[in-house]
Amino acid sequence: MSRLALVTDAWHPQVNGVVRTLDTTRTELEKLGVAVTMVTPADYRTVPMPTYPEIRLTVTWPGRVARAIDRVEPDYVHIATEGPLGQMARRWCRKNSVGYTTSYHTRFPEYVRARLPVPLSWSYAFVRAFHNEGVCCMVSNTTLERALAERGFRRLVRWVRGVDTVTFNPDVPAALPDLPRPVFLYVGRVSVEKNIEAFLSLDLPGTKLVVGDGPARADLQARFPDAVFTGNRLGEALTAHYTSADVFVFPSLTDTWGLVQMEALACGVPVAAFPTMGPVDVIADSGTGALDWDLKRACLAALSIPRSRCRAYAERFSWEASVRQFWDNLQTANTQPRSA
């Protein structure tokens, strides 16, 4: 049985697409007979991240992380994030001459710039060095691969995400059936980098519904009192909020994929978004969403998209296939000579 150490700074109780992706990947890998050990903040002391207390940063010594990986005696190491745990795992790999794979989940430089006056070039230099030192970096789509390659990232391979079409399905009764229609829904972190204000500022009929939590919630809730904010929802309760909606609005300009788009489609809800990385790759020419730099126009256009078409498209993205691609990438990258 192969042994994998999967290292991530993003983990429960965080509620986001990265955590859901990694947790599902672990479960599916175990079905393939892979022994997966998670190295996460759950095993260490953490402190709240400045300006974003919902995210906890690990505070520990590199030696403790090294011992945790040593106990696994891993055949493979995958480092999913560039945070404190990721850096300490990278140090272990250097010391032991072990190749590691990475995956690019978050446009970290753009997130930093949204909060602090840090030049993109500085942040990209940091993350580029981290990922280029690995044996490969897994990316979710063509647009992201092209953008990273232009910034000097090497050994990029594809890892397309899946969606849980059992949990997320259009047959779950709506949680909020009495909201004035049409219902335009956002699901995700309520934070500045998600560009939610672009959605809430639109002059739209019906109801704007926001599901999720984060540091910008109090401010947005005060500024947009007509919108409905529910906080985080999980499992069937989250599905019931998706099925309450007529259109899923994805205003982010910084996401690499946007798993919530796939969850909405699996529930039969069409997507309205800007034509940028993530939406252009998820929606493409499927006819399951409306992409327009005029977000209001996209929202109204999406109302006419058949829900059955959205569900049928989502059914093409299985987690089984996604995780098989991840595992194939991991094995191939660790058997090929490393090129410059």
Rank of each mutant, 00 (worst) to 15 (best):
T165I: 12
A175S: 11
T165Q: 06
P177S: 04
V160F: 07
P177F: 11
R161S: 05
P173G: 08
A175K: 06
A149G: 15
N169S: 09
V172N: 12
R158C: 07
D171W: 11
V163R: 05
V166C: 09
T143H: 10
R151T: 09
R181H: 08
A149R: 15
T165E: 12
A174E: 12
R161D: 05
N169V: 03
L148F: 06
A149M: 10
E145A: 15
R158Q: 11
E145K: 15
R158N: 06
T143K: 02
V163T: 14
R155N: 14
E150T: 11
E145V: 01
L176T: 08
D171Q: 13
T167C: 01
V163Q: 07
T167D: 05
W159N: 07
L156Q: 08
P177T: 07
D171F: 10
A149E: 14
F168G: 03
R146P: 01
F168R: 01
A175D: 09
A175W: 02
E150H: 05
A175T: 03
V172G: 00
P170R: 04
E145T: 08
L156N: 14
V157A: 15
D164A: 04
R155G: 12
T143R: 04
D171K: 07
E150P: 02
P170N: 04
R158P: 02
G162A: 09
V172P: 09
D178Y: 14
R151S: 09
F168K: 04
L156H: 05
D178N: 05
R154H: 10
G152W: 13
A175F: 00
P170D: 00
